[in-house]
Simulated scan of single mutants.
Amino acid sequence: MNGKWQAQMQLWCGAVMVFGLVLMSGAFEATGQMANILFDILDGPGPVTWDPALRFSLALMGAVTLGWGATVLAVVRGTGDMPAAQALALWRGITAALLLWYVVDSALSVATGFWRNALSNTVLIGWYLLLMRRNTATRAVSAASS
C-alpha cells in the first residue's frame, strides 16, 4: 500500500473518530454544543429532548463510532506488512461490514425522519469506496510492474 493511500485512509478514519467525539459531546449538557449543532443540521421531525436516555445513547454511539474509526485505523496501519492475499481478505471483510452499516444506518435514518444523516453516510461510504478503488488500482499497477 502506498503512503498516499495510507495517509488518505488515516484522514478518513480521523473523520469517523471526530464524528464519534461530536456524538459523545452530547453526553453532558456542559459539553453538548457540538451535538446541538449536529441535531440542528440533521433537522429531524421534531424538537430534541435532552433527557438522560438521549444523553446515554449519544455517549454510547459516540464511543462505538470512535472505536470503529480506531479499528479501521489499526487495519490501515497493519495491512501494509501483510501478504497481499491476507490484506485483501481483511479489506473485503471491512468493506462488507461498512456496507452493512451503511444500509442499516441510512434506512433507519430515513425511517426515523433524519434523512440528512443518510446523505452524510453516503458521502462517507463513497469516500471509503473511492479509496478502496484507488488501493486496488495501485496494487494492480505494482503487481504488473514487478
Score class of each variant (00 low, 15 high):
45 P>W: 02
33 Q>E: 12
41 I>M: 05
127 W>K: 04
109 S>Y: 08
127 W>T: 05
58 L>T: 02
110 V>C: 07
14 G>P: 00
91 W>K: 06
128 Y>G: 05
145 S>W: 11
22 V>T: 01
24 M>K: 08
90 L>H: 06
114 F>R: 09
87 A>Y: 01
131 L>I: 09
10 Q>I: 14
76 V>P: 05
38 L>D: 06
37 I>P: 10
65 T>F: 04
27 A>L: 03
22 V>W: 00
127 W>C: 05
73 L>I: 06
60 L>F: 14
47 P>G: 14
106 S>A: 01
6 Q>I: 13
101 W>L: 05
124 L>P: 05
5 W>D: 15
85 A>H: 12
111 A>I: 12
61 M>Y: 15
145 S>R: 13
110 V>K: 04
137 A>E: 13
94 I>G: 11
96 A>N: 10
23 L>H: 02
110 V>Q: 03
14 G>N: 00
3 G>Q: 13
136 T>Y: 13
44 G>E: 01
145 S>I: 13
59 A>T: 08
16 V>Q: 00
86 Q>P: 13
126 G>F: 01
36 N>Y: 12
5 W>P: 11
92 R>Q: 10
123 V>T: 06
137 A>F: 12
18 V>A: 03
18 V>I: 07
31 T>D: 01
48 V>I: 03
100 L>A: 11
107 A>M: 11
44 G>F: 01
7 A>Q: 12
43 D>P: 08
56 F>K: 11
28 F>Q: 07
106 S>W: 05
117 N>E: 14
19 F>V: 07
56 F>H: 12
71 T>A: 13
106 S>V: 04
105 D>L: 02
34 M>H: 10
9 M>R: 02
30 A>S: 11
14 G>H: 00
88 L>I: 14
38 L>P: 06
111 A>F: 12
141 V>H: 14
63 A>P: 07
99 L>S: 08
19 F>S: 08
36 N>R: 14
133 R>A: 14
10 Q>A: 13
40 D>R: 15
56 F>P: 09
144 A>H: 04
91 W>A: 06
48 V>G: 04
15 A>Y: 10
27 A>R: 03
98 L>Q: 13
34 M>E: 10
84 A>D: 13
45 P>N: 05
19 F>L: 10
75 V>Y: 01
63 A>G: 08
126 G>E: 04
